[in-house]
């Protein structure tokens, strides 16, 4: 009989192996989809760190995703920086925005925190539109194929792109897996479960929460910058409120506060929307129905329910 630790290692390692192997068997269409899903799931994992583990529900994460996306994109289009450096610029911008917004928004809690993050993200979205001369607003701009080269690999090539997306996913996934089982992660969980008690155990709750916001923002920015780089497009829709709702939806569906949940939720939701958009333009109806359904009947999400019923060792 294996202990929980081994089972969990086996399961999470197995998921990575399957994701790696899938590129050899998937048809081109799904191959491209899965590359997208892995980058978006990295965004969801960044969100989950804050929402699922620390218990802070942000409605403004599109701001961090867009900070990475535009930090990377503008660094290339306006300053002619190379892809690798632009990627770093994106991540750093995300961390910086995260630190500023975190320091302000963490003065509030609960519903006020949700509204404040929503408002800041809205201001960010409008700022993208306002500086249309550089961002090209709603229309967005394309990053030329010739510039999408990292370590002399052509990121627009489907095989390279899949591998790059897999690498980003792997890095975030392993980081989250280790983080939530570390002392840091356990303090975040303690804050989620009972903030006052965590404080009265001597933990500097404010600092931990700020660290969680900055880390979550950085991972979201990494996902945003990677997304722009891999798929060659930077546009304002990624800064809109919809892209703040998406990670919430993915994480809720997959299971908040589980390492695997964000991937499962993103995968399910991506294909649900993909399938329904073939039938109707009103594909966001699915998102609405799923949100209401989850709040009513399965607030734990898929992996959360699985943990509650079967695999109690799931991190």
């Amino acid at each position: 009989m294996m202990g929980g630790m081994q089972k969990s290692l086996l399961l999470h390692g197995g998921v990575l192996v399957v994701l790696f192997a899938l590129q050899f068997v998937l048809p081109a269409y799904h191959h491209g989809n899965l590359a997208r899903i892995m980058v978006l799931a990295s965004y969801a994992m960044g969100y989950n760190l804050l929402f699922g583990y620390t218990g802070l529900l942000s409605l403004g994460h599109a701001l961090f995703f867009a900070a990475g996306l535009y930090g990377m994109g503008l660094a290339m289009s306006q300053f002619g920086l190379s892809a690798g450096i632009a990627l770093m610029v994106g991540i750093l911008l995300g961390a910086l925005v995260g630190a500023v917004i975190g320091a302000l928004a963490l003065r509030t809690e609960g519903v006020a925190f949700m509204i404040v993050t929503l408002m800041f993200a809205q201001a960010g979205y409008l700022t993208v539109l306002y500086f249309g001369a550089y961002t090209r607003g709603d229309e967005g701009f394309v990053i030329a194929q010739a510039d999408r080269v990292l370590l002399s690999l052509d990121l627009s090539d489907p095989t390279v792109r899949y591998f790059a997306a897999f690498s980003v996913f792997c890095a975030v996934f392993i980081m989250c897996y280790l983080a939530v089982q570390s002392r840091f992660g356990k303090v975040l969980i303690a804050i989620r479960e009972n903030e006052d008690r965590a404080r009265m155990l001597g933990y500097d709750v404010a600092r931990y929460k700020l660290a969680a916001v900055v880390l979550s923002a950085s991972l979201s920015a990494l996902a945003g910058a990677s997304y722009g780089l891999l798929f060659g497009y930077v546009g304002a829709s990624f800064a809109s409120v919809q892209y703040s709702i998406f990670p919430l939806l993915w994480v809720l569906l997959g299971g908040a506060g589980t390492v695997l949940g964000p991937l499962i939720g993103t995968l399910f939701m991506f294909y649900l929307i993909d399938l329904s958009s073939g039938i109707t333009t009103a594909y966001m109806l699915i998102a609405g129905v799923v949100l209401v359904f989850l709040t009513l009947f399965a607030p734990q999400g898929l992996m959360g329910e699985l943990r509650r019923r079967v695999w109690r060792w799931l991190p």
């Binding site: 479960e193 009972n194 404080r199 009265m200 001597g202 500097d204």
Partner: peptide, 27 residues
């Protein structure tokens, strides 16, 4: 602030029980 005093060596237990109800006794 409270957390700094606790870290300096004050242990505090609440009048109204305040544990982490969803975590194990061990944790």
């Amino acid at each position: 602030p409270a957390h700094k005093r606790i870290a300096a060596g004050m242990g505090y237990t609440f009048q109204i029980t305040s544990v982490f109800p969803n975590l194990s006794v061990l944790e």
